[in-house]
Nucleic acid binder design. Sequence first.
DNA 1: AGACAAGCCTGTACGC
DNA 2: TGCGTACAGGCTTGTC
Length: 275
Amino acid sequence: MPEMPEVETVRRDLHRRVIGRRIDAVHATGARTVRRTSPTIVRDRLIGRTITGTSRRGKYLIVELDDDQWMLVHLRMSGQLILCDGDAPLANHTHVRLRFDDERELRFVDPRTFGEVVVVDPANLPIEAPDVAALGPEPLEIERRDFDRIIRGRRRMLKAMLLDQHVVAGIGNIYADEICHAARLRYDRAGDSLSTRQVGALHNAMQSILSAAIDARGSTLRDAQYVDLGGLAGGYQDRHAVYDRAGLPCKRCGRPIVRVVGAGRSTYFCPRCQR
DNA sequence: AGACAAGCCTGTACGC
DNA sequence: TGCGTACAGGCTTGTC
């Protein structure tokens, strides 16, 4: 499940390996993947373009083109970006292929087809990609004071706010649970019940967990949905303190981790460490 | 064989 | 009434 650390890992790989490459051919065969526009539009906007940079907003990967357009990629649950030789065998569920001038290909592979690829004019972002324009601040950039104001100004559950891309952009189910555990706060604490000190701990946990996850090249779970640009797994899953560890001992206190289900999603936490 | 994994949007219902 | 909030449903396929 690619979240911000996984997307950032792919972005950094991409940045090192495709800057300056020209797109000579485009195969956009997965209509659902390019649903925001169409296969024809995606192809026409990409052919002949040279990649000039990369960036990221939340879980959106941004590939910057020489005509100032952006190719936006969202991996959602099962999307993968793979860079390989143009003659490498095609994986199942390959929906978009960009052939570069050096014969390599960037491929978007996505079994569940929740992910998407779209080419937009960033000057028209609120029109062409309103969801991207509406994203909240980056979790590694937001100041403690601003974070405090947002979190403590609402009654909502802590985890719901961490997951809300308008509040802070890039956190998903795995890191939300890990951050709450590191901050020693229950997932269901109401924002306005937290002290300044507790939100400070949350801010610190958010930045340290996400930074450590980026350093470890992200989390690859048993289903191996997330791999990096070269198809390799990340390393942060071995350091998860709570996620997918129901019944296993808490790494801090030794008591069993509990799994609860709310709104159709699993939450893992330690009832002793998190209050 | 069916539960489960989950991001994100939409629609709906609820409580204060 | 209205706002903020919570959650089910929809979309999807591979895995256990």
